[in-house]
Design a binder for these strands. Structure first.
Length: 471
RNA sequence: GGCGACGUGGCCGAGUGGUUAGGCAGAGGUCUGCAAAACCUCGUACCCCGGUUCAAUUCCGGGCGUCGCCUCCA
C-alpha cells in the first residue's frame, strides 16, 4: 500500500508505527454553523480511508475532534443571544446528522476542546519551560523561530512570509509570525483559570493536546483539508514536536476542496451549498458517490448537473443490488477483489476503484441476462460497496413506511379491500394489475403503474415476475 | 510576489512512453403490450510551442490558462 505524504510530497509505502494497528487523527469541524458540502467531502474521504484500512485488517483507532471554543463560536453566540454551549451543541448535532446520512462511521473517539483544557494547559506549560513559548500580557505565544523545522510541511520561507505578513499595530508578539497558545479572557467571554491568568486556548493547541492524549506522540495518519496545511497543521507540528521531540505524524493526508463555479466553498464568504439541504433532496449515498468519483486529493466541482449525474450512477448500483440480492455465503470473484485492492492500495484511488466496480456490475448483469451464474461477481460488488460505504441502511429506501393511506386509497379506487398490512395492500394492487395484463387490459394496467409511480413506487415487469421498489 | 496542484472526448473523471479506464448524457440495436431495468454496438480525447525518442497525451524545457494556500476555513 502506498500513499502520497503531503510532508515532502513523496509517495511512500504505508507502514504504521505499530504492526497491525493504525492511529488516525482527522481535524473535525469548528462547531459554529451548519455544515456545507465541503465538510461532507472531507468526512467521506477519510471515512473511506478508515474503512479500507479496516478491510485490510488493521485495528484502526479513529479520532476526530470537535473544536467547540473559538472566536467565531463566541461571535455567533453573542449575535444569537445564546450561550456558546448552545451554539456548539446545536451545530455539532447537525454535523453528526449529516455524517450519519452520508454513511460516515462514528469516530472511535470524538474529543472536544473544552473537555481537554487541562491537557492543553499542561502542554502550554511544557512549551514555556522548554523555551518554545512565552507569556505576554495574559496571552501565551509560540515562538516560531525557536522551532527549526517550522513551515516544513507547507514548504515556506519564514523571511519571505514576513515580508508579506500583516503587521498588526501594537502587537505584543516578539515576532509577527508567532501564534497564540492561550488568549487572555476578555469581558463576557468564556474563560478557564490558568497559570497565566484566566483565558481560553488558541486555535491550534487543542488538536496537539487531544491527538497526543489519545494516540500518543506519533500519529500514523493525520488528515484534514488542504486549506488546513498552513497555518493549522504547521502549528500543530511545531507545538507537538517542540514538546515531544518526536515526529508528530508519519503520514499527512489532505483532501481537496469542493468548488462552486470554480471557486472554493467557504462559510466566511457565503459561497457554499448547505449540506443538510442537499442530503434532504437526494439519496444521501448518491452524494457520497459524488465525492468518491474524484480522487480525494483533487478539488471537485459542485453543480446540480454533476449531482444528477451521480444520482443516475448511484441508481445503476441500486438496480444491480436489487437484481442480485441474497449473496450471503457466496465466494467472492477473486479477480474483481484483487483489482479493487490494487486501486485502493494506490493512495486510495477511488475513481479507479469505481471503474472496477462498474466493470463488475456490467459483467454481473451480462451473466444474469444470459442465465449464467453471477453470484461470485455480485458478492464481490457487494463487498466493494461495503468498503466504500455505499450500501444504504436497510430500514430506509425499500420500506413502505408512510404509504399506507396512499396505497389504501389506490386499492379502494380499484374496488379492492385493503390488506392486513401495507405490504399486503400493495400485493393486492400489483396482483390486480397482473390480472389486467393477463387480459391485455393495458389501460388499467398502465393506470395502476402510474398510480403507484405517483406515490413513489416503481414497477418493473421482468421475465420472472413483477418487481417493485421505492423511488 | 512565494509555495503547491492542475489543464484529457458533450459533461465528470482515472491513467499510460506504443495495446478498452469508468460514470453520466447522446445515437442505433436486442428484449418488452408499452414502460423501466439490462445487454450489445458507436465517439480515433489528451491546452500551445519546442526538445528527447523508432514512438509522447504520458518524459524534459518554455509559454498560456485555471485552482488552492500565504487571514478564519474541510
Amino acid at each position: 500500500m502506498e500513499v502520497l505524504n503531503t510532508l515532502g510530497r513523496v509517495r511512500i509505502p504505508f507502514v504504521p508505527e505499530h504492526d497491525g494497528s493504525v492511529g488516525i487523527y482527522v481535524c473535525g469541524p469548528t462547531v459554529q454553523a451548519n455544515p456545507h458540502v465541503g465538510h461532507g467531502r472531507s468526512a467521506v474521504a477519510f471515512d473511506v480511508i478508515r474503512r479500507y484500512l479496516m478491510y485490510r485488517g488493521y485495528a484502526v483507532t479513529y479520532v476526530r475532534n470537535i473544536t467547540d471554543i473559538d472566536d467565531k463560536i463566541i461571535t455567533a453566540a453573542n449575535e444569537q443571544g445564546v450561550s456558546i454551549e448552545d451554539v456548539a451543541t446545536r451545530a455539532a448535532e447537525r454535523f453528526e446528522a449529516t455524517q450519519d446520512a452520508l454513511g460516515v462511521l462514528r469516530p472511535d473517539i470524538e474529543p472536544r476542546a473544552t473537555d481537554h483544557i487541562a491537557e492543553i494547559i499542561d502542554m502550554i506549560g511544557d512549551l514555556i519551560v522548554k523555551d518554545h513559548a512565552y507569556v505576554a500580557g495574559g496571552d501565551v505565544y509560540f515562538a516560531v523561530r525557536s522551532f527549526a523545522h517550522y513551515a516544513r510541511l507547507s514548504n515556506r520561507n519564514l523571511d519571505e512570509m514576513l515580508a508579506g505578513a500583516r503587521i498588526a499595530t501594537g502587537d505584543i508578539k516578539r515576532d509577527p509570525l508567532d501564534f497564540a497558545l492561550w488568549k487572555a479572557a476578555k469581558p463576557g467571554e468564556p474563560q478557564w483559570p490558568s497559570p497565566w491568568g484566566p483565558g481560553r486556548p488558541g486555535w491550534h493547541i487543542e488538536c496537539s493536546a487531544m491527538a497526543r492524549r489519545y494516540l500518543g506522540d506519533t500519529l500514523d495518519i493525520h488528515g484534514g483539508g488542504t486549506d488546513l496545511i498552513f497555518p493549522h497543521h504547521e502549528n500543530e507540528i511545531a507545538q507537538s514536536e517542540a514538546v515531544t521531540g518526536r515526529p508528530f505524524a508519519k503520514v499527512w493526508l489532505h483532501n481537496g476542496m469542493v468548488t462552486l463555479s470554480g471557486e472554493k466553498m467557504s462559510k466566511s464568504t457565503g459561497h457554499f451549498v448547505d449540506l443538510a439541504t442537499l442530503l434532504a433532496d437526494h439519496p444521501p449515498l448518491a452524494i457520497r458517490l459524488f465525492y468518491l468519483r474524484a480522487h480525494y486529493r483533487s478539488n471537485v466541482e459542485f453543480s446540480p448537473d454533476l449531482i444528477a449525474d451521480a444520482v443516475a450512477s448511484f441508481e445503476r448500483l441500486q438496480s444491480f443490488r436489487r437484481r442480485h440480492a441474497d449473496m450471503e455465503g457466496t465466494a467472492l470473484d477473486a479477480g474483481i477483489v484483487a483489482a479493487f485492492e490494487t486501486a485502493m492500495d494506490d493512495d486510495f484511488n477511488t475513481p479507479v476503484a469505481l471503474g472496477v466496480l462498474f466493470d463488475a456490475v456490467r459483467e454481473g448483469n451480462r451473466l444474469s441476462d444470459e442465465g449464467g451464474e453471477a453470484t461470485g461477481v455480485a458478492a464481490a460488488v457487494e463487498r466493494i460497496l461495503e468498503v466504500l460505504g455505499l450500501i444504504p441502511e436497510a430500514t430506509g429506501s425499500d420500506r413502505l413506511d408512510g404509504l399506507a393511506a396512499d396505497l389504501e386509497g389506490l386499492a379502494a379506487e380499484l374496488g379492492l379491500a385493503p390488506g392486513r398490512g401495507v405490504e399486503e395492500t400493495l400485493e393486492r394492487v400489483i396482483d390486480h394489475r397482473t390480472e389486467a395484463r393477463a387480459n391485455k387490459d393495458w389501460s388499467t394496467s398502465d393506470k395502476i403503474r402510474d398510480g403507484l409511480a405517483s406515490i413513489g413506487i416503481v414497477i418493473e415487469d421482468g421475465a420472472d415476475g413483477v418487481a417493485w421498489h421505492r423511488k
